[in-house]
Structure formats: C-alpha cells, structure tokens
C-alpha cells in the first residue's frame, strides 16, 4: 500500500471507530499527542510570540496595530500550523512509526488477524485520525499561547499595554485567516498520519528496519509538509 491508499483507507474505514477498542485507541492517542506534549508546545509557542513582538518593536518601534497584524500573519497563517507540525513530527510522529513498526516485526499484526481483528482498522485508522485531531487542537492551543504568552513575556521586557494589544489582535483577526490556519493543520495532520503510519506498516522482519523507518518517515513527512505549505502559499496568498 502506498501513501495514497493509506489515506483513502482511513477515510473509507472511519466506521471502525464505532467499535469500543478502536475508539479507546483513538482517545489514548489523542491524549498522548496533546496532553503529554503541552509543556513543549507551551514553551515554544510563548517564546515564538515573544520573539515576534520584540523583533517588530525593535525594527519599527511600538505600533499596536502593526504588531497585531504581524502576529496574525505570522502566527495564525504560517507559524502556528508549521511549528506544531514540526513538533509533532519529531515527537508523536516518530513514536507512531516506532510503535507500529515494532508491532509489525513482533508479528502482533498477525496475532490480531488471527483473532479476527483487522490490524489496519484497530491499530492504524485510530492512530491516523488521532494525529489529525491532535494537530488541529495543538494548532489552536499554539496560536492562543503564542499570542497571549508573547504579550505577557513582552510586557516584562518592554512597556506595552495589554488591553491595546488584545484590541489590535481582535481587529486584525479574520475568519478567512482562521479558516486557512485550520485547513493547514488538517492537511498537515493528514500528511503526518499517512506517511508515519505507512512507514511503520511497511517494515519487513528485521529489527534494524525500525530506525530506518523512523528516519525515512520523518524526512518524507517534512518534505511533504513544506511542499504542501508552498502550495498553500502559491494558491491562496499569491
């Protein structure tokens, strides 16, 4: 099965999530992908927001409207989806490939088949869906933290009024930008889910194939995400 078939398989087998054990896998994976990576995401998001605000203030002086727009353009349109995607590829994406490939090598896929359980429906579909859902949630959290955390950290360094910033952000925000950001996170999530799962399932029988699968899936996911991001920029913003 290639990447395309994995993606099509996931969408055409969403009904597998109606079964309790598959749903259980989905919830566990969402918890693992989101709650267990919150610390990392919070730190990176807050620092990203702070860096953007301080750099713009340094270059153009304090301008609440400009800062609001710059945060909108960078965090919501671009950095939010992209940074959460990169963090997810390096964390949950690698874990997903490692887990699936080691289960495949230990013949746990065969064990499931012999119990009448389709390993694709029990192991792969819930993990793919959870990756998409998790990236969507993390993207929203990243953006909120980058904007709010950035302000809080910046207020400690430069004399900025919090209420002015909130107003400038609210004036700059648009449904169109939010829709693009959400679309990006969903498409990036589908890319991570597809490539990491496919590499995890495509290993043979040797344990030495696990690190190869992880490295291969990480590189290909990164390529896929940057290509998709470029296409978004070309077709939507140009």
């Amino acid at each position: 099965m290639g990447y395309y078939q994995f993606l099509v398989y996931m969408f055409s087998n969403l009904s597998a999530l109606a079964r309790l054990p598959a749903r259980d896998v989905l919830f566990r994976q969402v918890y693992f992908n989101t709650v267990e990576s919150l610390q990392r995401i919070t730190l990176v998001a807050a620092l990203t927001g702070m860096v953007i605000i301080t750099q713009i203030s340094q270059a153009f002086g304090y301008d609440a409207e400009l800062i609001g727009k710059a945060l909108m353009w960078t965090v919501i349109r671009e950095l939010g989806p992209l940074i959460t995607t990169i963090l997810m590829i390096s964390g949950s994406g690698a874990a997903l490939t490692a887990e699936l490939s080691s289960m495949k090598i230990n013949r746990e896929f065969d064990t499931l088949r012999a119990m009448g359980i389709n390993p694709m429906q029990y192991l792969v579909v819930p993990r793919m869906v959870s990756t998409i859902v998790s990236l969507f949630l993390l993207n929203i959290y990243f953006q909120a933290t980058a904007i709010m955390g950035g302000f809080i950290l910046s207020m400690a360094l430069i004399d900025i009024s919090f209420s002015q910033h909130v107003t400038s952000i609210l004036l700059s925000i648009s449904v169109y930008d939010l829709a693009i950001s959400i679309s990006k996170s969903l498409v990036f999530g589908a890319a991570i889910a597809t490539v990491t799962s496919a590499h995890g399932c495509m290993v043979g029988t040797s344990i030495t194939e696990i690190p190869k699968a992880i490295i291969g899936s990480q590189m290909r996911t990164l390529f896929a995400v940057f290509i998709i991001d470029g296409l978004f920029a070309y077709f939507i913003f140009l």
């Binding site: 088949r113 012999a114 119990m115 009448g116 359980i117 389709n118």
Partner: peptide
C-alpha cells in the same frame, strides 16, 4: 484478507 479475518473471529487460538 477480509474473509479470513471474518472467519478467524469464530476461531479461538
């Protein structure tokens, strides 16, 4: 493969 998996739900190993 689908038929095999369905069949194995009636077999205990």
């Amino acid at each position: 493969e689908e038929e095999y998996i369905c069949l194995m739900s009636k077999v205990g190993l």
